[in-house]
């Protein structure tokens, strides 16, 4: 995982002792962490204009906190559309387990009950980071394909649609009432702009974005 070296773990817990201890534990596994003393502080970060996850990241969230609870913060993350690139792991006390389970059902990555005794938590953090990295890759790919698609003209996009569905040049020409020659020119230009060499590659590019 080439990006894991830059991965960040956001630690959000109002208990300084727990925060420090977790940071220390993560450091011992060579993971970078960024502590937040309250949910509000983290909200301030993600609400900053232009904020997005650029490197793999995950959030460790204590369910029971002061004014803004971990669960409310989770809702905020979901609202902002960050959940795919920022997996959330809940830390709970004994009594909050049902809340945490509920959160997992709604998309949280996992939850851990305090006190957590071994490195299982760190393992799950790494898994979450991996998920984040993958999501980031997908996001970047989709953005790249989008840029390429944007460069296509209207006519080229029409022709590309038909290429994907597997029509031959002749059929496309008949459908659009243009000459086969014109179709060939447009086709070559589509391949050029989409940076592919064949129709098969084009289909793969549009369908499964992570193979690049």
């Amino acid at each position: 995982m080439k990006r894991s070296s830059n991965a960040t773990v956001y630690l959000i817990d109002d208990d300084a002792g727990v925060r420090d201890a977790l940071a220390w534990l993560l450091r011992s596994r060579r993971l970078l962490s960024e502590p937040f003393a309250s949910a509000e502080a983290f909200v301030a970060l993600i609400d900053r204009p232009g904020f997005e996850i650029r490197e793999p990241a995950c959030a460790l969230l204590d369910v029971r906190m002061g004014a803004l609870s971990g669960l409310a913060l989770f809702e905020r993350v979901v609202e902002r559309g960050l959940l795919s690139t920022l997996p959330v792991i809940f830390l709970t006390g004994h009594a909050d387990v049902p809340t945490a389970v509920d959160a997992v059902k709604r998309g949280a990555f996992d939850f851990f009950e305090k006190p957590f005794s071994d490195n299982a938590l760190v393992d799950r953090i790494e898994a979450a980071l991996q998920r984040s990295a993958q999501a980031l890759g997908e996001r970047d790919h989709a953005r790249e394909v989008g840029v390429r698609l944007d460069s296509l003209t209207e006519r080229e996009r029409e022709i590309m649609q038909r290429i994907i569905t597997g029509l031959a040049n002749k059929q496309i020409a008949d459908e659009l009432s243009i000459s086969v020659r014109t179709v060939e020119v447009h086709r070559a230009r589509v391949f050029d702009k989409m940076l592919v060499k064949s129709a098969v590659e084009l289909v793969n590019l549009l369908r499964a974005p992570d193979k690049t």
Partner: peptide, 27 residues
């Protein structure tokens, strides 16, 4: 519940320090 939360916090911290220390020593 209150008591367990109050006790869990330091216990969680202690566990984290202990695990981290083990990690360091193993490294």
């Amino acid at each position: 519940s209150l008591l367990s939360h109050e006790l869990n916090q330091p216990l969680a911290a202690i566990a984290s320090y202990a695990n981290g220390s083990i990690n360091l020593l193993q490294d």
